[in-house]
């Protein structure tokens, strides 16, 4: 991508300003077109030649919900901040499905297209980004089911539900940063893929997806709160279901983490991208 911009800048053109803006626009348009096609490809191909087709998008979160309701709700009686447990768990499942889907797909996005990366000049960042958008779309469909579940349970969304949008932005920054770092490093060291798998499993258990953070003993709490998702999940449930206190200031930590991760991700990806083609 940097190469293209460089080459286009050297085209003869009437005025330098016009030329640069034209080059930037065309590069951006190309990036967007390619990203769109990659997303469409993933969407179209994922459930082709499956018997249930797109129903899988709904099936997976429902199965997860079922297990959580049984194990954490019925067996362990996990606290749920005063909301019906299925709603509590499903809100967690929807948010977590975005985080885990985006990172586990994103971190392998470059390596899994090795043939393309080695043979075609194109902006490689489109690969992890397409994976993230794909995960976002899956989670959006799961969010629709969350809405249906709320209707069934006669729970109205709280008036502060719009605050979920900034939450989504924070999560997107985090997963984009991690995916950019992971997908770039995975080209050089396949260990990264395995590390991500293990990491996501640990992270899931250390995140209040199936249980409320109130179960964590006070002496572990400072350590537990190092996980930026703790406050994100708590805030999201407070915003949507009106559970607990809604404290926007609690988001300073995840916002900082998100910005830092994104900055590191962009830097790592830009530095390593020129070496993808010869390494994959």
């Amino acid at each position: 991508m940097t190469r293209r911009r460089h080459t286009e800048l050297q085209q003869p053109c009437p005025g330098p300003v016009r030329c640069i803006s034209f080059a930037a626009v065309s590069t951006l348009a190309r990036f967007r077109d390619l990203l769109t096609q990659l997303i469409l490809r993933d969407l179209k191909s994922r459930y082709k030649q499956t018997f249930f087709g797109a129903l899988w998008v709904f099936g997976r979160p429902l199965v997860e919900l079922g297990v959580y309701v049984l194990v954490f709700g019925a067996f362990l009686r996990a606290p749920s901040d005063g909301v019906p447990y299925p709603l509590f768990a499903f809100s967690g499942v929807v948010l977590w499905s975005f985080v885990s889907g985006a990172i586990s797909r994103g971190a392998r996005a470059v390596q899994s297209e090795a043939g393309l990366v080695a043979h075609a000049p194109f902006p490689k960042a489109t690969l992890p980004l397409a994976a993230i958008v794909g995960a976002l779309i899956d989670s959006a469909l799961a969010a629709v089911m969350m809405g249906l579940l709320m209707i069934v349970q006669h729970v109205a969304p709280s008036p502060q539900a719009w605050l979920l949008l900034p939450v989504l932005l924070i999560l997107t920054m985090m997963v984009t940063g991690i995916s950019l770092i992971g997908s770039a490093l995975n080209v050089f060291y396949r260990d990264v893929g395995h590390l991500v798998d293990v990491g996501m499993r640990v992270w899931l258990l250390l995140t209040p997806v199936a249980y409320a953070a109130s179960v964590v003993p006070a002496r572990f709490k400072p350590l537990y709160d190092l996980n930026p998702l703790v406050s994100v999940f708590h805030f999201s449930r407070a915003a949507l279901l009106g559970s607990g206190d809604l404290d926007p200031l609690a988001l300073w930590y995840p916002v900082t983490v998100g910005v830092v991760l994104l900055a590191i991700g962009i830097w790592v990806f830009r530095v390593t991208e020129p070496y993808f083609a010869e390494t994959v």
Binding site: R4, T7, Q10, P12, L116, H119, A120, P121
Partner: peptide, 15 residues
Amino acid sequence: RVTGRLSLLSFLGGS
């Protein structure tokens, strides 16, 4: 240094 819009044909249909 390359001047102009560039396309590479290799691995046709590879994607």
